[in-house]
Design a protein around this nucleic acid. Structure first.
Lengths: 208, 208
DNA sequence: CTACTACTAGACCATCGATCCGGTCAGCGT
DNA sequence: ACGCTGACCGGATCGATGGTCTAGTAGTAG
């Protein structure tokens, strides 16, 4: 998607409108509710028309996902603050944006090559370099992967784990005593903060 | 899926055979290649028959994914070893199993409630408790999320990032200098080990 | 032998992503 | 003034999919 050139617009139906409506539709009905026909209908056009602006449905998802990344603000640099502050802020904003659109978790299995995603990745690399990591690749990928994994875990448990699953787990809790005692219904925000803290602490230790 | 009872078998076509063939088909053709019809055909039966053993296609994916988790061996306890050794071994095996079946990354957005996945999660919790973490929930979820995210990152970059994407990124590398300099074509094994090291180091620090 | 249940399958349905082909309309060179 | 080109639109349609309806068959318990 990102590597193909854009066309010159005539501005009746624009890529921007398509993406905005796609995000709205995804928010309302989830990933299975996104159909080219339904999306076209909401835009007051035919499904065929979409294919002039977009090559496949995958393109729509790529664009929608990058729009979500765009919601995560890049932290402003405050001189004198410890290096991990902007990193923590970025990862938190990253996570929040994804959680605000839970369908995004289902769709994270694609390369994040949109401009918004790349800008945030670049920010992360720069922050780590400024912090004194000469080879920030491992740290950056770890942080990004951690956010991705955390969001997916949380969303799948929250969304899919309804009554049925809960009952099932508690019924057989005897088979998984430690998990049942400490793993069910976690405080997701706290869990994320804790894990991010571990990562950053380990990185701080390796830095010095 | 996991919360529904099994039927008594007559053993011509069994759930086990279905799952094994599903994994094989997924390995060969990826997640888009898994069709109820194709799966049935490979099993020498009609697609309708599958629906007697399985309620939806989602069930097949649940089962296939749990079969993959089953490939990760549970580390044997060796007395006297540091607490993070079995944890590191488990996470490595977990990751390896998923990477051996790259389609699993596309399918990780579902609750991991199969017996194999739960057994490994339970092992993780117990190892952390034995290590002295009184409330291992945060640490365990962090580790699990980290593995999930790492695998997804690696698979998507490796699979989808072909020639086109590579060229695209290097062309515009000027826009993301730090990323281009340190983030492309990483050594995935080393990156995973590094990130896991950060996590474990941070946890060790919090423990003491 | 009968009845029951495990199990199989063909025909069929709605729906989906995507394409074919035929249009419409704005702007620009002449 | 004119017509042509290319941006843009959409109805009809294709092949395929997940899933159901209905009608069976075969092994087995009584």
């Amino acid at each position: 998607m990102w590597s193909r050139p854009r066309r010159a617009p005539r501005q009746t139906l624009t890529l921007e409108r398509i993406v905005a409506e796609a995000v709205a539709l995804l928010d309302e009905e989830g990933v299975t509710g996104l159909t080219m026909r339904r999306l076209a209908e909401r835009l007051g056009t035919g499904s065929t028309t979409l294919y002039w602006h977009v090559r496949t449905k995958e393109d729509v998802l790529d664009l929608a996902l990058d729009a979500v990344f765009g919601e995560a603000p890049l932290p402003a640099a405050r001189p004198g603050e410890p290096w991990h502050e902007p990193v923590r802020a970025l990862m938190g904003a990253w996570r929040s944006a994804l959680l605000r659109h839970p369908w995004s978790a289902t769709v994270l299995d694609r390369p994040l090559l949109g401009p918004n995603a790349l800008a945030r990745t670049e920010f992360l690399f720069q922050a780590l370099i400024a912090a004194g990591f000469p080879a920030p690749g491992g740290a950056a990928h770890s942080l990004a992967g951690f956010v991705t994994g955390s969001v997916i875990s949380q969303v799948t448990w929250q969304e899919r784990a309804g009554e049925e699953v809960d009952v099932f787990l508690r019924e057989r809790a005897g088979g998984w005593p430690a998990l049942a005692a400490h793993g069910l219904a976690p405080d997701w925000d706290a869990t994320f903060a804790e894990g991010l803290g571990y990562l950053l602490a380990g990185m701080e230790q390796a830095r010095s």
